[in-house]
Each structure stands twice: as structure tokens, then as C-alpha cells.
Amino acid sequence: MSPHATARLRIAVLLFIAILIESALGSDMRVGGVAPDLMILLTICAGLTGGAEAGAWVGFWAGLMADLFLTSTPLGLSALTYCLIGAGVGALRTAVIPERRLVVPLAAFVGTAAAVLLFVALGDMLGQTQLLDAGRSWLIRVAVIEACWSAVLSLPVAWVYGRAARGSVGAEQLGMIGSGVVRGERLPLR
């Protein structure tokens, strides 16, 4: 099996383990009623370590797996949201985000908050008005607490993702070194 295929397989296994951990522990980790979201965090890590294409692919599959465990929102809504966030983080990483260790928690914070807001906005546009029924204060609370969770968990998760993504196309292109923090030059703006 080629290194690229092996890396893809490792990422798929990592997503599977993440969804199991999230469904088993997520409800026990609620702060102010808000649980962390490992799938969006992995998506952001994919964008940071593999660029826009890897972010989009991982985001799509991570979102689809998350969708399978939801009932009131349509299948594909999380996939659409995470795919766009992964691609966005990846595009920013290759274009403007500099190489700094602090970038990972910062990107995790901003990316997660953006994902929550985008999920609700897209859902509302697609007729899922119940997402706004709990009120704006709840939405802001979810965005902030979930973003804080992502920032806290980002370094260990990015390290694990970096190990899993070793040898993948995007990681090679960005010169990833396996620690979850990338060591590449800024690429020209696409």
C-alpha cells in the first residue's frame, strides 16, 4: 500500500475513533451545557496540516459522520459546514497564516466559532429554523464555549492528527513534520 493510501486509512480510523469518543464522553464534558466537537477540531487540524483540499475532504467525511448521529437536522448539513471550514482554514494556512505554535489553538478557536455560526446560518437558510429557537444568547454561548474547548484540545489533537497524516499528499506539500505544527514556507496566494 502506498504511503498516501496508508495516511488516508489512518485518518479514516482516527475519525472513527473520534466519533466514538465524542459520543461516549461528549455529554460528560459539557460546560454550561455545551459539549466539545472533536470532528470540527480534526477538520481544522486537517486544513492546517494538509491545506485546503485535505481540509475539505476531512471536513466532508467528519461532518457526514457527525450527521449520522443527529436526527433533527438533515443529513449533509454538518458535512457542508465542515467541508467549507476545512477548505477555508486550509486556504488561509497556505496563503496567510504564518508558522507559529500558537497558530493551532488560535485557528481552532476561530474556526470552531465560525463553524457553529455557519452551521446555524446554513441550517436556517435550508429551513432548519429550530436551530435559532433557543435564542441568540444560546448560540453565542455555544460558539464561545465550543471554541474554547477546541483551543484547549487543539495541541494534543493536532499532534495525533499530524502523526496520522504523515505521508499524505497535503502534508507533504506543506512540509508537515508530524507534530501537528507545520513547517513550510508560505505558499503564493491562490
Binding site: G51, E53, A56, P74, G76, L187, R190
Partner: peptide
């Protein structure tokens, strides 16, 4: 870089369309 960028846009468009199709069907 240009070829890679075109491919990325193509992949993103396909994934977004796939997600939207699933949303519509559901």
C-alpha cells in the same frame, strides 16, 4: 500551483454539491 489550485476548487465544488444533494434528499 495553478493546476493544484484548480483541482482544489474542483474538489471543493464536488463536495459542496454532494453535501447539498444529501441535504435536499433528506
Amino acid at each position: 500551483v495553478y493546476r493544484r489550485s484548480t483541482r482544489t476548487r474542483y474538489v471543493l465544488a464536488v463536495l459542496v454539491l454532494a453535501a447539498l444533494t444529501l441535504v435536499t434528499i433528506d
